[in-house]
């Protein structure tokens, strides 16, 4: 007992001693605060400017409130008292229309727009199919020996309940209804980015809101340039070697950027890995790319487009980028090659 205590004391001493040498490093870095519970992922708010702790604290509290609000709206696993969220809407599928908060309504309207813009590749009504894969991923994580993938029959059956028109929005009454009891909504591919953009809306008008970078579960929302006026340098992982040197370093200023990669969330069955980006056409993880990175002004668009591009061919994606002109992209194909739109700026 005593010895254990002494051991801890020695360890504590070494930690204390080591922190002495590190304060300088800490002061040179950005102010930051990290959250663990929003959108089942890690979110970090950075301030690269010269904000006081008090000012940073105030802004980061506001951002936290915004993230929490959308976390609650988008949660498909839990209901919250006094709020009609996506879980409530899913549970009520096939029932009466539900009145929702205007902000959630705005978001759902945008989701229907995204479906049209991406030729159906970004479909928030894929819930029935995604939940089959999600359940397998959860099971594999807890009991790797039981790992399995959903049967083709179950996938095909679930896919009958994914039509975007099953999501009914009533503009005049601000109500929402899913008309098919077996259908469900899942906004995992767009929710985090959308929430990041709402936090960015706040920062744009906030006092001392300059020089922030939001990392909402990997969705980067970069406000302006660095305090010295230079762009930020953002590293894109090499999917072949995620721990190694970056595949590319992008030069980014006042934009959003997100990468979807096969190495992020996956599980393994019989030596084959299955990641989390499900192609609505094949109902299987898309095997077209190892990662897709999208740079766009709007973080919600960047998030949704990275998933959509993952599920279309390089040619279709390039064509979409040319047509829209409001985003840049970097694709890494299974052969390890990089493909990018003309406007993507690499760091020197």
């Amino acid at each position: 007992m005593q010895k254990k205590l002494l051991l801890s004391l020695c360890l504590a001493a070494s930690v204390l001693l080591s922190s002495c040498g590190a304060e300088e490093t800490s002061r040179n870095g950005p102010l930051s605060r990290r959250y663990y519970h929003y959108f089942d992922t890690v979110s970090t708010v950075y301030c690269y400017g010269s904000a006081s702790d008090e000012e940073f604290g105030k802004n980061v509290d506001e951002i936290s409130t915004i993230l929490e609000k959308y976390h609650i709206f988008f949660d498909i696993y839990h209901e919250y008292s006094g709020v009609t969220n996506l879980c409530t809407i899913n549970k009520n599928a096939g029932g009466e229309p539900l009145a929702v908060d205007p902000e959630l309504f705005d978001f759902l309207r945008l989701c229907i727009g995204l479906y049209d813009e991406t030729d159906g590749k970004m479909n928030v009504m894929m819930g029935s199919v995604l939940s089959l894969w999600h359940d397998c991923r959860q099971e594999a994580s807890g009991h790797p020996e039981n790992a399995s993938i959903p049967s083709d029959e179950r996938l095909a059956e679930a896919a009958k309940h994914t039509d975007i028109t099953l999501l009914e929005l009533d503009e005049s009454n601000l109500t929402v209804r899913i008309s098919d009891p077996l259908a469900s909504i899942d906004v995992g591919a767009v929710g985090k980015g959308y929430a990041a953009e709402r936090a960015a809306d706040y920062l744009r008008t906030a006092e001392g809101g300059e020089n922030y970078v939001l990392d909402i579960g990997g969705n980067l929302r970069i406000m302006g340039a660095k305090p010295d006026g230079s762009p930020y340098r953002a590293a894109v992982k090499d999917p072949m070697n995620p721990d190694g040197a970056a595949a590319a370093v992008l030069s980014l200023e006042d934009v959003s950027c997100v990468t979807s990669g096969v190495y992020e969330r996956y599980f393994t069955v019989d030596g084959r890995s299955y990641h989390h980006i499900i192609d609505p056409d094949t109902l299987y993880p898309s095997e077209r790319f190892l990662s897709v990175t999208v740079v766009a002004r709007d973080s919600g668009s960047a998030d949704a487009l990275s998933t959509a591009l993952f599920c279309m061919s390089l040619e279709e994606g390039m064509a979409l980028a040319g047509e829209r002109g409001d985003f840049q992209a970097l694709w890494i194909t299974p052969d390890g090659r990089l493909h990018m739109t003309d406007g993507l700026v690499m760091a020197q």
Binding site: A235, V249, T259
Partner: peptide
């Protein structure tokens, strides 16, 4: 490092 920010 080689960058300020790291994408997932």
């Amino acid at each position: 490092g080689e960058a300020d920010l790291y994408l997932p």
